[in-house]
């Protein structure tokens, strides 16, 4: 096994109360990769991401990131080490303006305002619609705009690894395409991305590699195009 993986998850098991929901999950991501985790509702995809970013504790297993052990570290310290999480359901700070939301993304960096301004300009260039609405309360944005805001906010933290949880959830088909286009564009610019999706077809179409998670266990892992053509995966998750 190559030891230079950016993120390595080893034998991870987590529980909600007495019920174990993830059993011995292992995966790894190399720098620059776009990796998708697909699986049905309730398979444990969100729990896996939440455990990686420290919002949920694991009772056994090990998570190492960029060579250091981050297992069960506090969420706010994991952010500092370079993992930014775009949570399921976006979780923008509704009463705060779009601008304030983005600025919060740079919270950990403690850079001078000039630096933050130029970074803000970069994000506004990536998402012009946000620039138009910068003064609005972010709770008033549409779902797609909130998703862009959540991604933009995470990007301001200059992540070494971006965790995306169901970015297509609740969005119109056209917007889903737009979001996946952005995800691919970010990855081509060098951002390492771990993408969790129920929309397996879209996710595997943009990813380099994929893992299939089923009732808390990884059942297959392969290059994304192989998974797309795999008979069993197609039947179970792609519906054709």
């Amino acid at each position: 096994m190559p030891s230079d993986a950016l993120l390595r998850v080893d034998g991870l098991s987590t529980s909600y109360g007495p019920v174990e929901v993830m059993h011995n999950v292992s995966l790894e991501i190399q720098e620059g990769e776009l990796v998708a985790i697909v699986g049905a509702n309730g398979a444990g995809k969100t729990t896996l991401l939440r455990t990686i970013s420290g919002l949920h504790r694991c009772h056994s297993g090990k998570i190492s990131f960029a060579g250091s052990d981050i297992t069960n570290s506090a969420a706010h310290t994991i952010v500092r080490s370079g993992i930014c999480h775009v949570p399921e359901g976006r979780q923008v700070f509704a009463p705060l303006s779009v601008d304030d939301n983005l600025r919060l993304g740079a919270y950990t960096l403690r850079k001078d305002s000039e630096w933050v301004e130029s970074e803000m300009a970069r994000i506004y260039e990536l998402f012009p619609i946000l620039k138009e609405k910068w003064q609005l309360e972010s709770g008033n944005l549409s779902g797609g705009q909130q998703q862009m805001l959540a991604i933009g906010r995470a990007l301001l933290g200059h992540p070494k690894l971006l965790l995306l949880d169901e970015p297509s959830m609740g969005l119109a088909p056209l917007l889903v395409e737009e979001i996946f286009r952005i995800v691919q564009e970010l990855n081509s610019k060098g951002v390492t991305i771990l993408l969790v999706e129920q929309n397996a077809r879209m996710a595997l179409a943009v990813a380099d590699r994929g893992y299939v998670l089923e009732t808390g266990q990884i059942i297959t892992s392969a290059p994304a195009n192989e998974l797309l053509n795999d008979e069993a995966v197609r039947k179970a998750y792609l519906g054709y």
Binding site: L55, H76, V79, Q91, A94, P95, G105, Y107, G157
Partner: peptide, 24 residues
Amino acid sequence: SRSGRALRALHGSEVAAEMMGINT
């Protein structure tokens, strides 16, 4: 200020604030 934004953020959602790296 930066601290003020952190304050207002944690009002909205403590979990999301933690995700921003704010030590709530």
